[in-house]
């Protein structure tokens, strides 16, 4: 299974594109943040596909986005 590319995504429906990206992202997110990986992956999937493809190729970008998502989640939970 090679890297996911924009060309591979372009042949799929918008819903399938998020599905394909989620399948690649989830294990990576889980390795960074095991407890909230499903929620964080859902949050990340709302971003642009081009940004998600970049994160799949750049562990540093992914990590910083996961950190940001954790911050957003914690702030949200603190408000409730």
């Amino acid at each position: 299974q090679g890297p996911l590319t924009a060309t591979m995504l372009s042949s799929a429906s918008p819903e399938e594109q998020k599905e394909m990206l989620g399948e690649r992202l989830f294990p990576l997110v889980r390795s960074i943040q095991p407890t909230k990986a499903s929620k964080i992956t859902g949050m990340l999937l709302e971003l642009d596909n081009s940004e998600l493809l970049h994160m799949l190729e750049s562990p540093e970008s992914l990590r910083s986005m996961v950190d940001e998502a954790i911050g957003v989640l914690q702030a949200h939970q603190a408000e409730e």
Partner: peptide, 18 residues
């Protein structure tokens, strides 16, 4: 900070393989 990240986003669910 966190622009574009929505804490109410749908939770990702892995589709079982096979």
């Amino acid at each position: 900070k966190g622009a574009g990240l929505n804490p109410n986003a749908k939770v990702w669910q892995e589709i079982p393989q096979g």
